[in-house]
Design a protein around this nucleic acid. Structure first.
Lengths: 128, 128
DNA sequence: CGATAAATTGTAATAAGTACAATATTGTAC
DNA sequence: GTACAATATTGTACTTATTACAATTTATCG
């Protein structure tokens, strides 16, 4: 894989931040540093880095796909009030067990949806 | 909530099948029985039933949102070869524990991606 | 049955993501 | 350093899931 300015920029940015940005968010942010950057490149790069196992993504209903650097397996928590997506320290522990059956697991997408206590106390909840 | 033909039809169909259809798939299927059914109604109904806690949905990268009747908490397995989405009997066991911290969990979205042994043996994998 | 509030419908819009062809850049051989 | 081939980037156009909205229809209650 070639080392291009765009790829380095995207990967560096993804390493620095912990807010699991979407492709759009990355594009908006990085355009400030590299105005010629194209949306397509962001998607391509995330896809390439994803296939290379360097980047992984999180998908939740009604949300854009959000990306992070792939490291140890962990789960995610999405706050339905503020939209922040954070890492949870543990990983789902059932993976080895389900390899027994009729399928082979390649990837674990564990995600928890709820609301931060802060958010719950501030407003009166996500929909009110 | 009003009891309409459309809602009953959608809910009944969702109860019968176990393939976790997408809104589009439901629409295509149910149009045979009710040709006047509109796409918007399918989306509206799934959203309404979702808010009522009757229906839940599963989201995986690069996939349409797929729906099922909400029952006991469980995880899902998506086969990257044939696209089938099946229920896994267990649920992620960490939910009570993470209620301790700074957030309240409302929903668990546990999903495992991989390949059915059948699919793996038949072809030479999803991309070949 | 008639009123009213809610649901359905179809069209149009939004927006995430992809395809593609032209241009530019990278890594390598010399 | 220069030339070359392979790969990456760019921008536009397209696809497609989902949402917005206004007009029409239907469910429910008296």
């Amino acid at each position: 894989m070639r080392q291009t300015h765009q790829r380095l920029l995207i990967l560096e940015n993804l390493k620095e931040r912990e807010d699991h940005p979407s492709a759009r968010a990355l594009y908006e942010e990085l355009r400030k540093e590299m105005p010629t950057l194209s949306r397509t490149t962001v998607y391509n790069t995330l896809s390439t880095l994803g296939k290379a196992g360097v980047v992984s993504c999180v998908n939740m209903p009604g949300q854009e796909t959000r990306y992070e650097c792939a490291d140890a397996r962990h789960c995610h928590f999405l706050c339905s009030s503020c939209g922040r997506l954070t890492d949870l320290e543990f990983s789902c522990g059932h993976v080895p067990q389900i390899n027994m059956d009729g399928y082979v697991v390649q990837e674990v997408v564990g995600c928890f949806k709820g609301i931060f206590r802060d958010c719950a106390e501030e407003g009166s909840g996500p929909s009110g």
